[in-house]
Simulated assay, not measured.
Amino acid sequence: MNLPLLYTFPISKVTTSILIPPLVTFLIAFLCASGGVSGAFLLLPFQVSIFGFTTPSVSATNHLYNVFSIPFGVYRYWKEKRFFLPLTLIIILGTLPGVIVGYFLRISFFEELKRFKLLVGLVLLSIAMRLIYEIFAVKKEIRFSSEPPKTLIFNWKTLKFVYSQEIFKLNSFLITFIAFFIGIIGGIYGIGGGALMAPILLAFFRIPAYVFAGATLAGTCITSIVGVIIFTLGGHQPDWLLGLLFGIGGALGLFFGARLQKYMPQKLIRIIITAGVLFIGYNYVTSFFKS
């Protein structure tokens, strides 16, 4: 079948219709936006398996997709006053140094990633088991509230806020500490951290996606900006045009997906996040046993 507007991208050497990249990312981002995830974890295997883009530049291109697309989703949450800045700050405080450490670990200690990937995959599957349990165990989910979270306490030790008439209390340092390690994983693998942070906040801290979605997207965006810079300086620049086309579709998907989120029940969002974590965990574990 002849695809219209066929083009060969100069850096990745991928040959496809210029309509395919934005269409794929629109669908991915639209599905994932409600959970505070950009969908980059689905885009990476698509690039590798379908496009045959397997050089280190594929990770840089994945980061570039986040850089172009995420601001539109974050803007939607911010415009609707659903962007929770205190949570965003404590996440970014951890992921930013983490991704830098992760990149240098990647080029020095983790040339062979199979065992480390197996460990991360097993951790993700354990998180997925917790999420699956809560899908059935949680009888009363948090309802969406048009009132934004109201901060009661915010310092380096504690974040306490009210949302939907319920009080939530987090250890700020612990969230930043977790975000630091998620940033390291992002630096090692070349992925954003939203797909890891979102399920942890949902499964173990019981924070509703209506509160953390904008924050995890913003954290992923910051991680990816640093990722693009580091990969480019390291001689593995992204495919700029392909990343831009991915970003156009992702921007539209995240924008409209974020807008739709307030109409989605928390249980449906929980199922979407669980499916994403299962996908990543399964692929990481099975890749260990492949030659």
Rank of each mutant, 00 (worst) to 15 (best):
residue 251 A to W: 00
residue 282 Y to C: 09
residue 243 G to M: 10
residue 157 K to Y: 10
residue 181 F to K: 06
residue 228 V to W: 09
residue 260 L to W: 12
residue 176 T to F: 05
residue 272 I to D: 05
residue 199 P to I: 05
residue 149 P to C: 12
residue 254 L to Y: 05
residue 273 I to G: 05
residue 195 A to T: 13
residue 272 I to P: 04
residue 189 Y to F: 15
residue 254 L to K: 09
residue 195 A to P: 00
residue 156 W to E: 14
residue 176 T to R: 02
residue 193 G to M: 09
residue 166 E to V: 10
residue 161 F to I: 10
residue 253 G to I: 01
residue 255 F to E: 06
residue 179 A to W: 05
residue 246 F to C: 02
residue 267 K to S: 08
residue 151 T to C: 12
residue 144 F to H: 13
residue 160 K to D: 08
residue 239 D to W: 08
residue 251 A to I: 01
residue 255 F to Y: 15
residue 240 W to T: 03
residue 150 K to Y: 07
residue 203 A to W: 07
residue 202 L to H: 12
residue 238 P to A: 11
residue 235 G to E: 14
residue 249 G to M: 10
residue 255 F to D: 03
residue 147 E to K: 14
residue 198 A to K: 05
residue 154 F to S: 13
residue 239 D to L: 03
residue 275 A to T: 11
residue 165 Q to K: 15
residue 172 S to I: 06
residue 175 I to Y: 01
residue 268 L to K: 07
residue 245 L to Y: 08
residue 228 V to I: 10
residue 234 G to S: 15
residue 213 A to D: 05
residue 148 P to T: 12
residue 268 L to V: 13
residue 150 K to V: 13
residue 165 Q to T: 14
residue 200 I to D: 00
residue 177 F to M: 07
residue 195 A to D: 07
residue 255 F to A: 11
residue 241 L to G: 06
residue 258 A to C: 11
residue 178 I to N: 04
residue 160 K to F: 02
residue 226 V to D: 09
residue 235 G to Y: 08
residue 151 T to K: 09
residue 188 I to N: 10
residue 166 E to M: 11
residue 218 A to F: 15
residue 146 S to L: 07
residue 201 L to Y: 04
residue 218 A to W: 06
residue 205 F to P: 08
residue 209 A to M: 12
residue 198 A to R: 02
residue 280 I to L: 03
residue 215 A to H: 04
residue 247 G to H: 00
residue 220 T to K: 00
residue 242 L to P: 04
residue 161 F to K: 05
residue 263 Y to A: 06
residue 255 F to I: 02
residue 220 T to Y: 00
residue 270 R to S: 13
residue 230 I to S: 07
residue 272 I to R: 02
residue 277 V to G: 00
residue 229 I to L: 14
